[in-house]
C-alpha cells in the first residue's frame, strides 16, 4: 500500500450522506429479437455514509445498478429509494464518476469541476468549493490546463472532483480507477478514503478489483446469478469492519480474498 496522504487541513463544505434502499429492483432489456433480464430482484439497504463495493463478473449488471441509482436508467420493476423518496429521472442527490474521465475538452480543469456544481449553490460558495476540491485532489497547479494537457490519473481526479462539487448524498463510482496504472490506482484509493473523511457521503463503487474492494469498502456486495432465477442478484453481502489502513497480510484479509475470488469464479491458488 502506498503511503497515506496527509488528510487536508482545510475546512471542507459538508454534505449529508443519504441512505439508499433497493426495493426489488429488476431490469430487463428488450430488443426486437430477445428479452434479456440483467438484474433479477435486488434487495439491499445501504445506511448513510457506508462505502459499498460492488463486485461481479463482467456483464452481470453492476453498472446497470449504479445507473438506476443515478436516474440515468430506470428499473423495469421495483424502485431505488434515496432517503425516503424514490429516484425518478436524473437525481440531484447523486453524483457519478465514470470509468473514463469524460471531461469537456474545451473547458479547463477548473471549469470542468464547475460542471458538477449544484444549480442551487451561490457563485461565491461554488468558487470556494472548487478551490477546496482542487486542493483536496492536488490539482491546484493544473486548474487552468485543458484535459488533453494532463495525465490520465489527473483527469480521473478531475472527474472525482467534479462529482464531489455536487456535494452528493450518494457518490456513484463506476470502476473509476479501472483504466489507471497500478501505482496511480493505489494513490487514488488513498485519495478516496481522504475524500470520504472530508465529504461525508454514501459511496457505491463498482470495481473488478477484489483487493481494491477489500481495502476501501465497509461492505462488499457480490452480484451474480443463482439457479432458477432470471438475472443477477446479490449472492454475497460481506461486512468489513477492520480499521483502515488494512493489513493485506492479515489472515482475515487473505481468507476474505480467497472467498471472493472463488465466488467470482477465479481459482485463488493462482493469484
Amino acid at each position: 500500500m502506498a503511503t497515506v496522504l496527509a488528510p487536508p487541513a482545510i475546512p471542507v463544505a459538508t454534505s449529508t450522506a443519504l441512505p439508499v434502499t433497493f426495493d426489488r429492483v429488476s431490469r430487463t432489456f428488450s430488443t426486437r429479437r430477445e428479452t434479456r433480464t440483467v438484474l433479477g430482484q435486488v434487495d439491499l439497504q445501504v445506511p448513510a455514509g457506508q462505502v459499498v463495493a460492488i463486485l461481479g463478473a463482467s456483464g452481470c449488471g453492476k453498472s446497470t445498478l449504479l445507473r438506476a441509482v443515478s436516474g440515468l436508467d430506470h428499473p423495469s420493476s421495483g424502485a431505488v429509494v434515496i432517503a425516503g423518496s424514490a429516484v425518478n429521472g436524473v437525481d440531484e442527490r447523486c453524483a457519478f464518476a465514470f470509468q473514463e474521465p469524460r471531461l469537456l475538452p474545451w473547458r479547463t480543469v477548473r471549469e470542468n469541476i464547475a460542471l458538477g456544481l449544484a444549480p442551487s449553490i451561490s457563485k461565491q460558495a461554488g468558487r470556494e468549493l472548487i478551490e477546496e476540491l482542487l486542493t483536496l485532489t492536488e490539482l491546484s497547479h493544473a486548474a487552468d490546463l485543458r484535459p488533453r494537457e494532463i495525465s490520465g490519473g489527473m483527469a480521473q481526479r478531475v472527474s472525482l472532483a467534479r462529482a464531489l462539487a455536487r456535494r452528493p448524498g450518494v457518490l456513484l463510482l463506476d470502476e473509476p480507477f479501472g483504466a489507471l496504472d497500478a501505482l496511480t490506482r493505489l494513490k487514488m484509493q488513498d485519495l478516496l478514503l481522504d475524500i470520504h473523511r472530508s465529504f461525508p457521503t454514501t459511496v457505491l463503487m463498482v470495481t473488478h478489483d477484489v483487493d481494491e474492494a477489500l481495502t476501501l469498502a465497509d461492505r462488499i456486495i457480490v452480484l451474480g446469478r443463482s439457479e432458477g432465477i432470471q438475472g443477477a442478484g446479490v449472492v454475497e453481502d460481506l461486512a468489513l469492519d477492520a480499521a483502515r489502513p488494512r493489513d493485506h497480510a492479515s489472515p482475515d484479509f487473505i481468507n476474505q480474498r480467497v472467498r471472493l475470488l472463488r465466488l467470482l469464479g477465479v481459482d485463488p491458488t493462482n493469484h
Binding site: L72, E92, A95, F96, F98, R102, L104, P119
Partner: peptide, 27 residues
C-alpha cells in the same frame, strides 16, 4: 455519447445541454 451522458448525470438537459456540450463540440 459519453460526454452527453456525463452532463446529463449532472442534470443538464434540453437547451442547457445544447449550450454546454453539444454546440461547443460541433463548433
Amino acid at each position: 455519447k459519453q460526454l452527453i451522458e456525463a452532463a446529463r448525470s449532472f442534470g443538464y438537459n434540453g437547451l442547457a445541454l445544447l449550450r454546454t456540450v453539444q454546440l461547443p463540440a460541433v463548433v
